[in-house]
Design a protein around this nucleic acid. Structure first.
Length: 324
DNA sequence: CATCAGGGCCCTG
DNA sequence: CAGGGCCCTGAT
């Protein structure tokens, strides 16, 4: 088993997201499958972060309002880090949680839409977010493929147990991701033993991109979306269903919705048309017509709103679609 | 006990 | 561009 790393040093600061800002809607996404690298309760969020070859713990606490956002951030580390590094992590947190986004134009353009309006009011100021790095998000995309939620959870936890670490900070014990080097050095069989199946090859080739091919997420961030998309599709194991998770989640491209997978198709059919199954092309046409360049962000609001409702009271038709 | 699809993608023909 | 194969698991 993994030895627990105690992150006894910490650095505290305050971040000021642009207003309006919805803390809980931004840090916690109920539609995502659960994993042991994060913890959440209302107004509080913990996660681990690999950054510049070290493992950090991060805690965010909401101490503002939607109109006057204020988030206290504590960054925990095993050894005392240079103040400059703490600052860089804070900038990275701002990027990953889209804290500096200005969504006024989105609300202007889409606020009047009857389908979007309720979610937009309930989650006013919500951002798209991904606490993971690009490499880590690729791992998520890979374990999601062709698997039920339960199996995705199992694969990720097996990987955490074998290659990751456990860190302790702020009375939490959470899993942390491994560096891609660890996967490159592992054999395919070693990965298969973790029951990831044919994905072993994908995980190795993706890790190699970062270790040997110099894949760098920071330089990708400034790419125009079409070139970025082509670059991501070049990654082994990334196809049409995964690429927009990356474009939207990791790279905050609000229009990234050009493919609807079967399980999402059923959900969108209900939400947009109140029908059991609508042709994927019709769905894509409808989101384009309604929300244009904001279509993925708009759908994200409606999607997460639905999954928040599910936390309070089960949504019968949805329960059937979420196979654990 | 067997068969099959699941929150895809690659590769081949 | 269509379709078979791929890992493992739980459902039937």
């Amino acid at each position: 088993m993994n030895q627990i790393k105690i992150l006894k040093h910490h650095f505290d600061t305050i971040l000021f997201p642009t207003a309006p800002f919805h803390f809980d809607g931004t840090v916690y996404k109920p539609s995502h499958f659960p994993s042991t690298d994060v913890a959440y309760e209302e107004g509080k969020y913990w996660r681990t972060m690999r950054f510049e070859d070290s493992v950090f713990g991060m805690k965010m606490v909401n101490q503002g309002t939607v109109e006057e956002p204020e988030v206290s951030v504590s960054v925990y580390s095993e050894k005392e880090a240079h103040p400059g590094q703490y600052q860089r992590i804070c900038r990275e947190i701002e990027y990953r949680f889209d804290l500096k986004a200005d969504l006024a134009a989105f609300v202007d353009d889409c606020g009047g839409d009857d389908l979007l309006k309720p979610a937009l009011q309930r989650w006013r100021g919500m951002r798209v977010s991904a606490g993971e790095s690009l490499y880590e998000f690729l791992v998520l995309a890979t374990v999601l493929q062709n698997a039920t939620v339960r199996r995705s959870v199992q694969m990720l936890e097996n990987l955490f147990n074998r290659f990751g670490s456990v860190v302790s900070f702020d009375r939490k014990e959470l899993s942390a991701y491994w560096p891609p080097e660890a996967i490159v050095q592992a054999g395919e069989q070693e990965l298969r033993d973790l029951k990831v199946g044919y994905r072993a090859k994908t995980l190795i080739r993706q890790a190699q991109e970062f270790v040997n091919e110099g894949m760098d997420e920071y330089s990708l961030r400034v790419f125009p979306s079409d070139r970025l998309k082509a670059e991501l599709l070049d990654l082994y194991g990334i196809g049409p269903a995964s690429v927009w998770y990356l474009l939207f989640g990791v790279f905050k491209r609000y229009d990234a919705l050009e493919y609807v997978s079967p399980w999402e198709q059923k959900i969108y059919s209900r939400l947009l048309f109140d029908q059991e199954m609508v042709d994927a092309e019709v769905i894509l046409g409808e989101v384009e017509r309604r929300w244009g360049k904001w279509k993925m962000l708009a759908v994200h609001y409606i999607f997460e709103d639905l999954f928040w409702q599910r936390k309070t009271a089960p949504v019968p038709w949805l329960e059937e679609l979420i196979r654990l």
